Simulated scan of single mutants.
Amino acid sequence: MQQLLETVNKNKMQKGYVLKRNFDYVLKNHFLYWLIAPAFILTIIFKYVPMYGVIIAFKDFSYSKGILGSDWVGLDYFTKFLSAPNFEPIFMNTLLLSAYGLVLGFPIPIILALMLNQMRKVGVKKNIQLILYAPNFISVVVIVGMIFVFLSPTGPINKIITLTTGHPIVFMSDPEYFRTIYVLSGIWQGAGWASIIYVAALAGVDPELHNAATIDGANLLQRIWHIDLPTIKPVMAIVFILSAGGIMAIGFEKAFLMQTAMNLPTSEIIPTYVYKVGLKAGDYSYSAAIGLFNSVINIILLVLVNFVVKRLNEGDGLY
């Protein structure tokens, strides 16, 4: 008993010491906490406080009764969505569009970063980076407008097709082409900007490693495989986890702007459906339930992908 009491007292003293040390650190570096205070407050206000409104997904929301006064309906709206005849096509459209974007778009920034890292002329490298990064700053509305112009029946792409086949292809009205156009235009717009993080990671590679490998007879591909890729491997793991974890959080704007009456079988995704059901039809509880379902799927994917990557990548993950 005496030994147990001594152990408890020792643990209390250690905890008290840790708390005092942390408190002293906060007082000593209080200016650092003042620097992050605005971001912390804004995150609480705009990210956590609005979560209160999620409860309308479990209620039959009425303006007159308010959120708290509306009647509880439990999981009725979730059941309604899961049993809806359009659930499967909408869910699969969202999943496939995101999956294609991840599979095709994930390696492109890495390849661009590796290519840029091999360029030795600083002026040429900066000009190429400017060209690659520029599309990221173009508005989504402008991007979609460019897509409609270039792929219109009288656009430059169809003029070439007409010369070879004799008839144009109505790309934006054919559901078969929607995913390809969406993914490729997204890669063109964002690949250059996404490569920045890999370029920054490659900047930390010791040039002596490349010099030593060259002396040992390693060619360019061997140096990239054994020096550059292992350096950016942790960054690749984190980026992949975040991308895969947000696979259901596909952007609304571009998909909605690219929609036409003819390509809806492949262009109707969960975010566009939520917009139509919630804001246009006014069924806020149903749209909130769909949005919450989408968020839960994202969280599950994030945890699963992080677990798999940590097992395959020797512990490199988000947590």
Score class of each variant (00 low, 15 high):
G155Q: 04
Y177S: 09
M146E: 11
G145I: 05
I169D: 10
I181T: 06
P168G: 13
K159N: 13
E176F: 04
I161K: 02
P156W: 09
Y177K: 03
Y182Q: 09
T180I: 11
F171H: 01
T154G: 12
I169P: 09
T162C: 10
T154N: 15
P168K: 06
K159V: 00
S152D: 09
T165K: 13
P168T: 14
F148S: 04
D174F: 00
T154V: 11
T154W: 09
H167N: 15
G166A: 15
M172T: 06
V170L: 12
Y182S: 07
I160M: 12
E176T: 06
P153S: 12
F171G: 04
I160P: 01
I160R: 02
T180H: 10
P156M: 12
V149E: 13
I161H: 08
T180G: 13
S152N: 02
V149W: 11
Y177F: 14
M146N: 13
H167P: 03
P168S: 15
P168R: 06
G166S: 15
I160K: 01
P168M: 10
F150V: 05
F178E: 05
S173N: 14
S152K: 00
P153H: 09
I157P: 02
I147H: 04
F178W: 07
N158V: 00
H167F: 10
M146L: 15
Y177Q: 08
M146D: 12
I161F: 08
F148Y: 13
M172W: 00
